[in-house]
Amino acid sequence: MDLFQYEFMLRALAGALVIGLTAPALGIYLVQRRLSLIGDGIGHVALTGVGVGLLFNQSPVLTAVVVSILGAVGVELVRQRGRTSGDLALALLFYGGIAGGVVLVGLSDSTSANLTQFLFGSLTTTSRQDLIVIAVLGVAVLTAMLALRPALFAVCNDEEYARVSGLPVRTLNLLLAVTTAVTVTIAMRTVGVLLVSALMVVPVAAAQQVTRGFRTTMAAAMAIGLGAAAVGVTVSGELDTAPGATIVILAIAAFLAITVGAATWRMLRRRIPAEREHAGPPEVVLQEASAR
């Protein structure tokens, strides 16, 4: 049976592919500056935005974008002041965001099924309009992340050096905060706020097991994200599993496979030179023997 003869499956696939490509392109900067969990924090805040939307009968995605941008910029300002630790700021975000979301959704007259949709994603109900929003915002985020790579790399790698270089560090940091919020909100449809961060972080974690440079890590992470999204939607269609969770499980499987593969490769490579040494000139063997 051809799954993709249904339009809703095609829309689901297209939406997932955009997120699969965009989330790791942004996530690599977050991982680099040790803010791997910020996406999760913003995701929780986005839930409050969803609650606001449902309560006031506005588009939940729209209110989620606005509220999560406010949250992300707030966190960034706290971080710049350097007074509260990033750790505590994140904790406040997590709990405040989810509590606000649950309370607001409860106050509105929508069902708990509605809340679940945003917590775990609901890819197959992606409408044509949703898909346009996802595509436009996704491409915008992706373009910014790729075009500004040298500057964003410099800021995330060594913020003080970037400041002394005269780079607009504050603006670039705010750009990262805003794009994180936007990516979280558009990914909300695909994987849900609880799993958003996984798509930003896991492909990067998988890629960096085998890469040597930042640019190659970014490319590999995007490829892994895209692959997990494509295979995930197909598998979830065949097995009738939740698409978001399936995509994340596949990304983690890729991480495990690459980690084990890389470790095995390193072990093999270490063994080969050791064997070559035995075939080396006699004095090497003698030295080895005396050393033992």
Binding site: I28, V31, Q32, L148, A154, S165, F214, R215
Partner: peptide, 21 residues
């Protein structure tokens, strides 16, 4: 942070002040 960067990529950051972002 664990995200690898090559020597060349780190040194290239030094050009940003000259060439702009």
């Amino acid at each position: 942070s664990g995200v690898p960067a090559t020597v060349g990529e780190v040194v290239a950051s030094g050009r940003l002040a000259r060439r702009g972002i």
